[in-house]
Amino acid sequence: MEDNKDKKSRKKTTIETKEKKPSFWSCILNGIINENPTLVLMIGMCPTLAVTTSVSNAIGMGLSTTVVLISSNAIISLIRNITPDRVRIPIYIVIVASFVTLVEFVIKAYFPVLNEALGIYIPLIVVNCIILGRAEAFAGKNNVILSIGDGIGMGLGFTFGIMIISAIREFIGSGAILGHSIVKEDFRAALFVLPPGAFLVLSFLTAIQNKLKLPSASNKKEGCNGDCLNCDIHKNDKVIKEEE
């Protein structure tokens, strides 16, 4: 009997040391710092560029994406053991789309100004690569607590990233921070709140990251890199198709 117990406990310890599951807090920090979706992985570029004309828009977009990310991560991780592998992507899409619809209702009801400003980009949270990417890479494989942590981390990391970009754009472009104008009108460069400014700010941010050798998608071969053709997610799909 004792031998058996010993074996069991030994087995347990070996499994624990092998997998070394991350803790709740490390998941959150990972999303905000190490794998920041906007500044490091550079995924979810469409809302990043489109809604960063003012800090308040960016916060609204970031928080609604965070809510969708947390809830979809939680549900996907809850049903991960009963999800058939072949139809997992459509299932993920339906779950994400339902939560996006819920968030859209809440924004329409309580934040009409934000709804006006974000417009079509609220339903387009469905096709934000961050959400499906985390569902595929994290929530489909880990337990609920960790998935919620990952959702909080990634969501806050995204919010933080687009807040930085929008702060730069709002300050240079309309001379204001959070709507309070600081700079005189003569010293404003309206280009920065127009579409070209988004590309310019992002390009200089990544160039600075390259200069300082900070981890980012453009100086490290990991991450999305915007290169959809060589994306890992699609590689898996291709492998599955070839197997079929």
Partner: peptide, 23 residues
């Protein structure tokens, strides 16, 4: 191209100039 602009940043600069042209 300047070392730190190689890769993605220069593409974004090109996109920025194109966006200016399109405005």
């Amino acid at each position: 191209i300047p070392e730190s602009f190689k890769g993605k940043p220069i593409v974004l600069v090109v996109a920025c100039l194109m966006a200016i042209a399109f405005t």
